[in-house]
Write a protein that binds this DNA or RNA. Sequence first.
RNA 1: GCCGCGAUGGUGGAAUCGGUAGACACGAAGGACUUAAAAUCCUUUGGCCAGUGAUGGCUGUGCGGGUUCAAGUCCCGCUCGCGGUACCA
Length: 946
Amino acid sequence: MRDYDFRKIEEKWRALWVANKTYHVEEDEAKKKFYVLNMFPYPSGAGLHVGHPLGYIASDIYARFKRQQGYNVLNPMGYDSYGLPAEQYAIQTGQHPEKTTFQNIDRYREQLDKIGFCFDWDREVRTCAPGYYHWTQWAFQKMFNSYFDTALGKAQPIDQLVANLEAKGTEGINAACSEELCFTADEWKAMSEQEKSQTLMNYRIAFLGETMVNWCPKLGTVLANDEVIDGVSERGGYPVEQKKMRQWCLRVSAYSQRLLDGLDTIQWSDSIKETQKNWIGRSEGAEVQIKVADSDIEFTIFTTRADTMFGVTFFVLAPESELVAQLTSAEQKEEVDKYLTYVKSRTERERQIDRTVTGVFSGSYGINPITGEKCPIYIAEYVLSGYGTGAIMAVPAHDSRDYAFARHFNLPIIPLVEGADVSEESYDAKEGIVMNSPMEGKPSLNGFTLNGLTIKEAIAATKKFVSENGLGRVKVNYRLRDAIFSRQRYWGEPFPVYYRHGIPCMIPEECLPVELPQVENFLPTESGEPPLGNAQLWAWDEANRKIVDKALIDEKTVFPIELFTMPGFAGSSAYYLRYMDPNNGEALVGEKASEYWQNVDLYVGGSEHATGHLIYSRFWNKFLFDLGVSKKEEPFQKLINQGMIQGRSNFVYRIKDTNTFVSLGLKDQYDTTPIHVDVNIVKNDVLDVEAFKAWRPEYETAEFILEDDKYICGWAVEKMSKSMFNVVNPDMIVERYGADTLRLYEMFLGPVEQSKPWDTNGIDGCHRFLKKLWQLFWDKDGNLQADATEPTADNMKSLHKLIKKVSADIEEFSYNTSISAFMVAINELTAQKCRSREVMTQIVALLAPFAPHMAEELWEALGQEGSVCDALWPAFDEKYLVESSVQLGVQFNGKVRFAMQFPADATPEQMVEMALAAPEAQKHLEGKQIVKTIAVPKRIVNIVVK
RNA sequence: GCCGCGAUGGUGGAAUCGGUAGACACGAAGGACUUAAAAUCCUUUGGCCAGUGAUGGCUGUGCGGGUUCAAGUCCCGCUCGCGGUACCA
């Protein structure tokens, strides 16, 4: 008997893998590539808990499986070490973020190393390393120097646009922009440097814009839309307010359509695709010009329901709209001002919670271009400035928000759909036949009518009419906003930008990276003064092309450098490209490496990044694709979202006002308070009473009311967190059971994509399985018991059943079922007393992705050359599974009554005949008539009787 | 509100094309070995009923209907839970 000494085995192979560079990977033209990637972690101070490695284990198994299939597998790892989480931790612990970040990285690495991953650590990237963020800055400069050509549908050099402006002004320009501009070449040439710079910002993909931002005073920075949840910050849950600020932005919106189209080309879950589709929010509609009565002013509204133009009874402007000032009449001014003050006083959160109808009449009237009718123009906060044109036509009969507004202000409601009852609520559905369009006897431009059409036909007809008659145009709107790209924080990539007389200029490419300067005080400020303002060495000497002391700023050759830093998503947007060629000093990624690795074949990470990282990354990659740097338009071909591992908390029940604790089964007899107890002193819900007394001083004198001499704890599934005392540390599991057991158990818990609670109790099963597997290989004297005996038919059947199952399951990330199949196979082979070296060798090859340490040890014991990582994946052969007979259930009237053997090749007719002849069948046939018989080979026989 | 996903024993979860529901594992109960513990092994384990027993019968996949020879699986209508999103016109 040789004991399964997992500590010795795992330590041995960890060292050998490092020494032999087993997981080092190079481009190899002779082999097909496969790129597996995990979302890299931000190293938090708490270290890893047992939930973090779940995705890494899943992808590691897949990577090893692909390698054994002969692929050249890239499976790198790194750290997302810039950004808010790292900085918040530093602030909380009062240490410099650089120090804590490096400590945390070391801790992560130590923990990761114990789990047996096949990462190629030579390719590690850290977003806070200058050699890495060099290329983040570089990409930013490329975006600054590009615009998005809407005719070509791709990014182009800004110089081309400038050339066009020099020659023809804005004529013939197809560029994504913040607002439509129109000027001539002469006007362009007449502009000052400042004005030109300002004008180009309207087109650049990375641009400085004066926009409404989510300002979080507590965090002291602005936040992107996806970093704000329910009106509070995602990090820390602090209030967020809307504020107009000058910020760097990325014109992500220019890529809306490509981001949408790309979703059809990648293998992601429906739910994530759906989330992204909603976030991009494409809506097809029309923009219509509205003339204001007794004025030259015109404004534009956006609608997706062009068919309802005959039902317009008022117009509404967003309070933030620039039109508000122009359209407010003298008589209404006081009331409008009062309303605007009220709107400004409300925070984003108040607006979300309190949806009571508010608004004010502007004093002006808009003219419905089709009916010629005058309708009042209101100002109301239910219309958003950021979407569409910030102005709408209101059709209360067919829009619930307009309906509520009309009821509140007593405005007319005109139904436009036959049979629609609008006395109580609006009819919003897009189904039905149009009427009242126009109403009998009412005028309509050129006799235009929609009556009798279905709504869908009416929408199309109106769009056509509107564009043909110059009333407006067909327009597609997207909800996707440009990303706000600057943060008033210290711990992030500095912008490679300086300001010459207020004009932003790029620090020359060959001077990159611009390194983050050291500062004493890195704390953010509520007023929004960036911490980089504290950096002394932070000015750009244009003549000498270097960073100098800011005391030298003279606005002639020495200028101030940008004080903002980049947001967390900057560094994580293109890191997968850097892994391909991590040490390249000349480029983000070399041509050869980029050509070879292409893009990520399998990406594993949490679904919480659906509207953040996964959108930004796709955008960033599309931009780099336009530049020719990235070779595939989509960065992540297949995406697997691992579920969250929740905690399983334990409770003890203290009788109120005492120090006596009562066991779960008896607690209802007392008035008790549940108290969280550390899950590490509870086994199978039984409390270790002595450990509990030692846990906290106040429990030292605790008394217990037991049942069956045991204290049974209650339990609940909660988030895994320190405060619930339900955190389980992977180091502890590795120490007690070994890394192979941890890997197996994490996968055995359930489907990778599903969230499930961690319960250490079940781990014994996986550990026992590994022990059994180990024992299969050794006799009682500790000698290998694999010899050259011919495998029996049973051996081969067990083996090939397993090969088939495991091969198929890994491909579908159904690891829990493959491990079950493994358990069955090992039990069978043990019962068969299998000795065959051939079978044993293949079993080890199959085991390798799951339990690599043990597999290596057995592979070596079997006398095999090299690492088991390169063991060929066993080929499945159907012939070993062919059965001469098969056992099937025989049904009467759809209910299974008994089981019997059938020849595997029996025809349905033969099966029915055999089933009817069986003695067990007789009692079911007695006095009954056969109505119908059904037989499906290898499935079922069913006899219907009456 | 809208969109998406889900609900199976005491627990985690299996079940390919609609074809013997509950694989595998945990826990529990009983037993073997042991001075004892740990470890290991064996038996039972969805519920109810009948039988000394082998066994047999009924029932059973959130609820209510339907399609089908046959439904955890398909269709219709609900309930609950999770995730996303929201005055997006």
